[in-house]
Design a protein around this nucleic acid. Structure first.
Length: 810
RNA sequence: GGGCGCAUAGCUCAGCGGGAGAGCGCCCGCUUCACACGCGGGAGGUCCCUGGUUCGAUCCCAGGUGCGCCCACCA
């Protein structure tokens, strides 16, 4: 064993061994209680980022903890086909080759996606292994696998037959680049410096005057069908019911009243363009207005724009502004900063357009899920996210499930020439209505999240009634980021209840968002991302896991190499204290034989730590857990215990050796879920190992050492006092030996002084005496607080006596 | 605009009603046979501000300020 622990070789070797020996495997016929984590399937084109690494660290720590505790553990790996994200990645690749998706055509394009995935996809599973994620990699699933596709089709047909899937012409978010609709959740908003244009719409009766509106998109004036004002707006009271003339197209439209119009924006008058604005669309529908679309699917002015057809919106803006200026109807133009919606994948500006799309009705589907959440059959951690989850589900709008991209699950809908629709899981021979065999399949594909929603059970073979499904559903835990709750978490819950009859998991951990060291979000485009593989290369996997878990305290936390380095130090420390013990215990017997105070003390400390660690892990307090492990190892095990027993180890004291091995064995078990590799490596070097640590049983409660581990307190305190003061040791027997071992190295040169320490103690004593002399304190403070204060006072007096006596004796 | 979170040592963060802490960084001393990626010692803090509750507030409450994340159709 080398003095410096080098993780690279060790970690790779264990990752290989654990997997090859089948220790990650989950078997459905294993009848122990289950612990199941269906890990979020990353995009098949994705690479590990810091969020993934954090998520894996905490999930794997819990998986390993439960595996040791005897659970039949399934940690499910896999990928998502990630519709637009993947299509976008492959399209970029095609551009580099000098071609386009359109030039290839749909079938050839799909073929290229598969080829591309075989070549470049799947990288992340290698990275998962490098994180030490103890997943059953035999069970890797992909949402485009044939059985998974069948599950998706089954789901669609199920919903359709229940009457919850319908087609409607509504305003949607259209990405002109991807030529598809997008849900609100697939957009990003960016602030833009723009202009707000005030335009006069003259009254149609020629009586002079008119209504002035404000718009950020003059080009859409061509699609105006009304002007709306708030019914409570005194300024426009007399205009309501009259007609005004839309500029440029010179069409008369009514002035209507609608309370959704904001009194405080612009002039309080809104031009109504149902074809190109969500609010206008709603107002239009409620007032029975026309829905002309003057912007087309390519984002340019459409045929309906007449002489402006084919222009870009910016060009159309200019033409319309010029027209307005000539006629003095351009009231003013002012700088205006506002947020615009972009496609999150290609950052193209989103066009709100009216389109015929497929929708999934949420009203009935969400109710059982809401009930499950309210009854806490699914619990969010932290609890604060529970309210958000419930609220977002309560207000979930109907779900636009159709997309006009090419990569994804094609809708299982067939049309005959008469327009009848046939819905089947697999291609039907003839039309269900008229028997026609001339069927054409719908070209649309499903929203990626439609298939993700099935992940916890489609990975187990659903809709078949498989042994896996029976054994591993419902699962235990899901881990995810805050913004994924509505996209995924809620949907898994309602689909699980609807299709399998139970919630997919009982607990959801919404983990910390790791920010860049400067406090901004980690993002490739900002250049603030940190590659976890680089961290692993520099510090090792164990250290990376430790550091990331240490950072899980708040809702957002800044990444810090210091936290990772702490993990590296811990692994190295553990390695070295193990060297000390292992190189001095050859032939030692088994079982702890604590004789001296420090030995009973370390066993009690480890036992206390076991209890506390179980509490931390049970509460998903990973920062607390790693903090505890660090101090247990560094302070208690190394600084005090190991230092104290060194002389006896060197002397070949068989009982001390046996106790040291037993204590180390227990310590390794507690550390394994966080630092799996270094602990397994040391474990292998312990004498007579029959099992791997990864499957070794978690320590049972140690009733023999369950007491208060305060036995060493006096010795430790005395040692610290003397270290500071440099005074000689007045202790005897065992205490003297401990003291010799701990203090000897530092005693050579005193650089504090006893008098300063005596001063400090006198100050503490005065403070405690003052508090206890305060009658109101004694009368009002809880008894144990007063008692604690008395205890401190006694302790300080005792220390002062010891120190003073020792100083005297010099 | 809404929701949530954060403000404690130079940095990253614990603590959350009765002595202000850790890791890193800094200073001093140690070639001690597990570890110099180490050991020991030390300096360094109006615990964001203002009020309130309490015998007592870094901790609880209210208001403010600053920062962050998420969400949102003010044209």
């Amino acid at each position: 064993m080398e003095p410096l622990y080098k993780p690279d070789g060790v970690e790779a070797r264990w990752q290989k061994t654990w997997e090859e020996e089948g220790l990650y495997n989950a078997e459905a016929d294993d009848h122990r209680p289950t612990f199941v984590v269906a890990h979020p399937p990353p995009n098949v084109t994705g690479e590990l980022h810091t969020g993934h690494a954090l998520q894996l660290s905490l999930a794997d720590a819990l998986v390993r903890y439960h595996r040791m505790r005897g659970f039949n553990t399934l940690f499910q790996p896999g990928y998502d086909h990630a519709g637009i994200a993947t299509q976008n990645a492959v399209e970029k690749h095609l551009v580099a080759e000098g071609t386009t998706r359109q030039a290839l055509g749909r079938e050839a394009f799909e073929q290229r996606v598969w080829e591309w995935l075989h070549e470049y996809g799947g990288k992340i599973m290698v990275q998962f292994r490098r994180m030490g994620a103890s997943m059953d990699y035999r069970r890797e699933r992909f949402t485009m696998d044939e059985p998974y596709v069948r599950a998706v089709m089954h789901f669609f047909v199920h919903l359709y037959r229940k009457g919850w899937i319908y087609r409607a012409n509504r305003i949607i978010n259209w990405c002109p680049h991807h030529e598809t609709s997008l849900s609100d959740l697939e957009l990003v908003h960016v602030e833009l410096d723009d202009a707000l244009t005030y335009v006069l719409y003259p009254f149609a009766d020629g009586s002079g005057g008119g209504v002035t509106i404000a718009t950020a998109r003059p080009a859409t004036i061509l699609g105006d069908v009304a002007v709306a004002v708030n019914p409570g707006d005194e300024r426009w009271k007399d205009a309501v019911g009259r007609d005004v003339i839309v500029p440029f197209v010179e069409r008369p439209v009514p002035v209507i009243a609608d309370d959704r119009v904001d009194l405080d924006f612009g002039t309080g008058a809104l031009k109504v363009t149902p074809g190109h604005d969500p609010l206008d669309f709603e107002i239009g529908r409620d007032h029975g207005l026309d829905e002309p679309m003057v912007v087309g699917w390519d984002g340019r002015m459409s045929e309906a724009a007449g002489e402006l057809a084919g222009l870009t919106q910016a060009e159309a803006d200019k033409r319309i502004l010029a027209w307005l200026r000539e006629r003095d109807q351009l009231v003013k133009r002012e700088p205006y900063r506002h947020a615009v919606a972009l496609c999150e994948r290609c950052e193209t500006r989103i066009e709100p357009l009216i389109s015929l799309q497929w929708w999934c009705s949420m009203s009935e589907l969400k109710e059982p899920a809401l009930e499950a959440l309210r009854e806490r059959r699914v619990r969010y951690h932290p609890e604060s996210q529970h309210r958000f989850a419930v609220g977002s589900l309560e207000h979930a709008p109907d779900w636009n499930i159709s997309r006009q991209i090419w990569w994804g699950h094609q809708l299982p809908l067939w049309y005959c020439p008469d327009g009848h629709i046939t819905v089947e899981e697999t291609e039907p021979g003839r039309c269900a209505d008229c028997g026609s065999s001339e069927l054409t399949r719908d070209r649309d594909v499903l929203d990626t999240w439609f298939s993700s929603a099935l992940w916890p059970f489609a990975t187990l073979g659903w809709p078949e009634d498989t042994p896996d499904l029976r054994a591993y559903y419902p699962g235990s835990l899901n881990t995810t980021a805050r913004e994924i709750i509505r996209l995924w978490e809620n949907r898994m819950i309602f689909t699980g209840l609807e299709l399998v009859g139970d919630v997919p998991f009982s607990d959801v951990i919404i983990h910390t968002t790791v920010l860049a060291p400067d406090g901004r979000r980690m993002s490739k485009s900002l250049g603030t991302g940190i590659d976890p593989v680089e961290i692993i290369d520099r510090y090792g996997t164990d250290a990376t896991r430790y550091g990331l878990l240490k950072l899980t305290s708040g809702q957002d936390v800044r990444f810090s190499y210091g936290a990772i380095d702490e993990g590296r130090k811990l692994a190295n420390k553990l390695w070295n204290v193990s060297r000390l013990i292992l190189s001095n215990t050859s032939g030692a017997r088994h079982g702890a034989r604590p004789k001296e105070t420090v030995e009973g003390w370390i066993l009690a400390r480890i036992e206390q730590a076991r209890t506390e660690l179980e509490e931390h892990l049970g509460a998903y307090d990973f920062a607390g857990a790693v903090n505890l492990l660090y101090h247990l190892t560094f302070d208690d095990f190394c600084d005090w215990y190991a230092e104290a027993i060194k002389p006896r180890l060197y002397d070949g004291d068989g009982e001390a050796q046996a106790t040291a091995l037993a204590a180390l064995e227990r310590l390794l078990k507690l550390l394994h879920p966080v630092l799996p590799h270094v602990t397994e490596e040391i474990w292998t070097n312990l004498p007579d190992r029959k099992t791997r640590l990864i499957v070794a049983p978690w320590p049972e409660p140690d009733s023999a050492h369950a007491g208060d581990p305060g036995a060493l307190d006096r010795v430790k305190e005395a040692a610290e006092i003397f270290r500071r003061s440099g005074v000689r040791v007045p202790l005897e027997g065992e205490q003297l030996r401990i003291f010799e071992a701990v203090v000897k190295p530092e005693r050579q040169k005193a650089n504090g002084n006893a008098e300063a320490e005596i001063e400090r103690l006198r100050g503490e004593i005065a403070r405690a005496e003052k508090m206890l002399a305060n009658d109101r304190f004694v009368a009002n403070a809880p008894a144990q607080v007063v008692e604690a204060e008395r205890g401190k006072l006694e302790r300080y007096r005792r220390e002062l006596e010891t120190l003073g006596g020792a100083a005297e004796s010099l």
